[in-house]
């Protein structure tokens, strides 16, 4: 029982670190070259951050044991805000106030 949970937590941690290193490799791979706008990379980096965030909330904070309604709400909130962020990234320049 304890062994099982330990292994699960370790696996989650390994995945989180793996995704972090992957996004590092994507985002900082071209070390010291001039940064240029890159929509695909930004999309990938933000989505990876959202997945990491969800893993932390579901596994470490144990929201996966919460009632379905709460989980749906949290998912809706997370992907909603990621959607808004991506929309602002894509179309923000047209939203001059």
């Amino acid at each position: 029982m304890s062994h099982e949970t330990d292994r699960r937590l370790a696996l989650v941690f390994a995945l989180l670190t793996g995704v972090t290193l992957l996004s590092w490799w994507l985002g900082a791979g071209d070390d010291r070259q001039a940064f240029s706008p890159d929509a695909a990379l930004s999309l990938a980096v933000i989505l990876m951050a959202a997945i990491k965030l969800r893993m932390i909330v579901w596994e470490f904070m144990e929201l996966r044991h919460a009632p379905l309604r709460v989980r749906r709400g949290a998912d809706g909130f997370l992907w909603g805000i990621v959607g808004v962020m991506l929309l602002v990234y894509a179309f923000g320049s047209r939203m001059q106030v």
């Binding site: 951050a49 990491k52 470490f60 904070m61 144990e62 990234y89």
Partner: peptide
């Protein structure tokens, strides 16, 4: 568990800040 949940929240906030400030282009 409440204390632990707060600490994890600090962690996930950093994950998003890291992506937005350091990584995205």
């Amino acid at each position: 568990e409440a204390g632990a949940i707060f600490w994890h929240m600090v962690d996930f906030l950093w994950v998003m800040i890291f992506a937005l400030l350091y990584l995205m282009r």
